[in-house]
Each structure stands twice: as C-alpha cells, then as structure tokens.
Amino acid sequence: MSNITVQERDVVIPGQVLAEGLDYLPGDNTYRQDDKIYARALGLFSLSGRVAKVTALSGPYVPKTGDKIIGQVQDILMSGWRISTGTAYTAMLNVKDASARFIRVTEDLSKILAIGDFVIVVITKVTSQNLIDLTMKEPGLRKINGGRIIQISSQKVPRVIGKKASMISVIKEKTGCEVTVGQNGYVWIKGDSPENECRAEQAIRLIEAKSHEEGLTDKIQQFLSK
C-alpha cells in the first residue's frame, strides 16, 4: 500500500518523507531509501503521475547546456576569454565561438572584449566538473553596451519571463526598455532614460518579491501603468 504523506504544493524541507511505498518514483530533488521517498532540498512538493518531485525555492544556479546567460569578462587568455557566470564556476568563451568574423591570431583580444565587459552568451557544454563552454555566435548574443545589470535569484527567472514571455513583454512595452534575462539571474535593462530603467528594475524586484502570487502579470501591468 502506497500513499503520499504531504499535500500538493506544500513547502517541504530536506529529509522530509514525501511518499511511502514502492508505487511512487523519486523525481527532481528527492531520493528513495528503503520504501520511502524523501526530499533532498527545500522546495515545493508536486506529483506528476507517479513521480514525486520537489521544485527548489532557493539555491544556486546550475549551469545547463542551451541556457542563455549574462556573464562578465574576468580574464583574457591566449585563445579566448574567461567569463564569470555568477556561480562557483567560470566559463570559457573561445575565440572561434565569439564572433562570426574571422579573428586573426595577431589580433588584440581586449579590443574585442575587454575585462569587465558584460556579454549575452549561450552555454554549449557543461562537463561533470562543471567546466563551461560558451558561444556568442547565435542571433541575439553579443557584448552589452550601456544600460544596467541587476541580479535576481535564478529560481525566479521563469517568473520574470512569464508564460510565453508574457511578463517580460509587459515590462518592455510599458517602460520602453530593452530587457534581457539570463538564466543565471543576471538581468540587463536598457532604456532611453534612467527613470524608465529604474521603473523596469522596480517591476522586476516586485516580481521577485511576489513571485508566488497569482495574477502577477496583471499586478505588474497596474504597477507600471501608474
């Protein structure tokens, strides 16, 4: 006989029993020991079919292949740039992945990306030791000029973007700012005036603070219409 010991969308803490019996399967952030499934991290419990999983509410950004992130050039190497990602691990942007243009061996790399520059990049590879490879060759990926960078919790990123990018398009539309959200929690905001940038930042901070509330898109719309 198997049963679930917590309610759907309950906050569970590490080591809490989620399910008893062998009918359920351990999903994300859970593990099985004997005939019980336990939480491995703090988060919201949910059951999809027979899989019990926990959606983390906090915690570090875990780099994944295909993620678009915003990073900062930390160092210039022989064949590329070392990019800090806001995690415990730095990433490598190779010369051949940095530009569609052919970059010659003799060129000064600091003329292309200097230390301290922010870049929008995509992760192409993550190894088991969390070594990260990046590319800047896809459309929309580039060096950032102007605007401001703010940092939010990476767990809140999906909420800031919204379903089918609904939330972010509201912010873009109402403030006239260009907004790019990196999966690592870095957000780039560029508008025609500092006031608009500030409004966009305030809206994002509001989303971060009220990320669990229903109908947040409407609230943000109201907030920005004021």
Binding site: Y38, R40, S58, G59
Partner: peptide
C-alpha cells in the same frame, strides 16, 4: 536548507 543546498 534555506540556501537551497542539497541535504539528505
């Protein structure tokens, strides 16, 4: 736990 560190 609050920091989201995996714990058994």
């Amino acid at each position: 736990a609050a920091a989201g560190i995996p714990m058994t």
